[in-house]
Design a protein around this nucleic acid. Sequence first.
DNA 1: ACATGTTGATGCCGTTTCGGCAACGGCTAT
DNA 2: ATAGCCGTTGCCGAAACGGCATCAACATGT
Lengths: 312, 312
Amino acid sequence: MRFHSPAIQYFHAVRRTGSIRAAARVLNVASSAVSRQILKLEQEVGSPLFERNARGLTLTTVGEMLARHVMNVLQDLDRFRSDVASLSGAWHGTVSIACIESLTESVLPDLIASHRGRARRVSFTTEVKGSSDVLEALSRGEADIGIAIALKHPPDLRQVALKRFRLGALVAREHPLARRKTVTLAQCLAFPVIHALPELSIYHLLQPLIAQLSETPEPAIQANSIDLMRELAARGVGVAFQTQLGINRLSRDAQLVFLPLDNAGSPVWSDLGIYVRAERTLPAYTESFLQELVRELGERERRENAAYPFTA
Amino acid sequence: MRFHSPAIQYFHAVRRTGSIRAAARVLNVASSAVSRQILKLEQEVGSPLFERNARGLTLTTVGEMLARHVMNVLQDLDRFRSDVASLSGAWHGTVSIACIESLTESVLPDLIASHRGRARRVSFTTEVKGSSDVLEALSRGEADIGIAIALKHPPDLRQVALKRFRLGALVAREHPLARRKTVTLAQCLAFPVIHALPELSIYHLLQPLIAQLSETPEPAIQANSIDLMRELAARGVGVAFQTQLGINRLSRDAQLVFLPLDNAGSPVWSDLGIYVRAERTLPAYTESFLQELVRELGERERRENAAYPFTA
DNA sequence: ACATGTTGATGCCGTTTCGGCAACGGCTAT
DNA sequence: ATAGCCGTTGCCGAAACGGCATCAACATGT
């Protein structure tokens, strides 16, 4: 089922690999063939698509425009293929997800497992990245669904849903704060704190608030792994911060205590966005999973905000 | 700039013309070439795309799926082309509009004229149809922008905006009703009425209400042309019904009087929708006109509802 | 019933396009 | 300087494409 001009596919491969010869290797064709197709494309468009650097190729402005078109074409071709396949009852394909770390602990594995239980022929590819990298991967067509902290998203992405979760402090059961119902940031800062590094979005959520308090905090630990921070907190090393999403209630509830965070009398929210390339119609199996994802995250949002209501 | 496989273009032409030989004529190629490309496509998809009738070809289910994909590809190619062109300062292209008759009297000509004043290189194609035909033409990719009475629209269309206009009675200056500020349907039915035929959407708006009143109306005239109905009303033949959109205030206000219609104490609304194919990104010049259209219709909605406020 | 016109499909053949191989010049890093 | 990678180009065989003439199937008009 390859009814698109080879030029399209070659261009796509060159864009991804950043090199004609590398693209040729991926495509199992001679590099000369790829080179010629690119030259032909440039001639037809009437403008160079790549800048030839010594080390490879970089897209020009026109090249980026074509890349957008080619991505639309190839992604829609995927959808068409899946539509035809689902017509004959075969529901199979691969859902590609890019998301931030908070999801890996329970949300995503639960969802994927349950979805695979129902649709065994649907496979998954998941890649954990920072929030901005998630959006970038989505823009580049390297993922179908993206889950990230809701920043300003580029116009070529569509925010399917926006769920807000309450940020909280994570302490060990024996920690002095563990008996409280809620904590303030100031209370936490009186103890050793496990800070997120700037690569994590929690850093950008909390840093402004911490700066406001302008207290000299206890000597703290910094980390860039949600998982590591959680484990450190469980061992009583200090106070970590995250949403409850990252905590598996089954196993770790015994060791860890989650305390919703208050700051200046109001909760600290972490907004989670679900994103999709805007200029695209998803294959049926992807759309189906996406809806389950939105529903599940909505459910968790509801449950957690019910468990820790904000009393004004 | 033809970097898509000929099969795509041939398929598209065959779908539109409904015949291989007709498509070949349009494409300036031999019919055998078209026939072969279609056969090749069917072999690659693994399923027939057309049903061969004696009189031509009809799409199968799979064919319709491919048609959707091909339409997405070709429309996005258009957008890419216009993006590249606008990069070198040249803003040109054709905006294709399908709309119902009410717009032709002043809204559309005003807008097009003013737009052409600013962007001389943008041309327009407009086709007047019934509401459901407008949506159908849009679905088939025969128009870029559709304006129609807001019915239930198919999922492959996106409702860009929804504006409601008050339905009113149109009578000549000398008509006994002409001095009133508003009229009720019952009052109108006491006089000769110019009815819309079922092909016009006004029919479907008013018929249920008229049926409720269940009075035997005066012998009436029926017509399927908004324009004709308006002219008849101007000549005192009877009462016509339409939104004020269809009345050019400059020339005809002298002859015609517009009386907002009340029924059972509430206004009768005519909902106008602006539609676009959902799976599509519009070229810049089309998007620009679309936004002007939405703004202008919103402006008219505001003005008219201010001129004839509903007093509950 | 017959002739006529139209439909899509097919065999044949010249032309165009495509892809593989080898070689070239430009560049970088060692 | 050497080695390694890069993209491009000339040459040539293979594959794809398009045009022409022809065929069978069907609809239409007489």
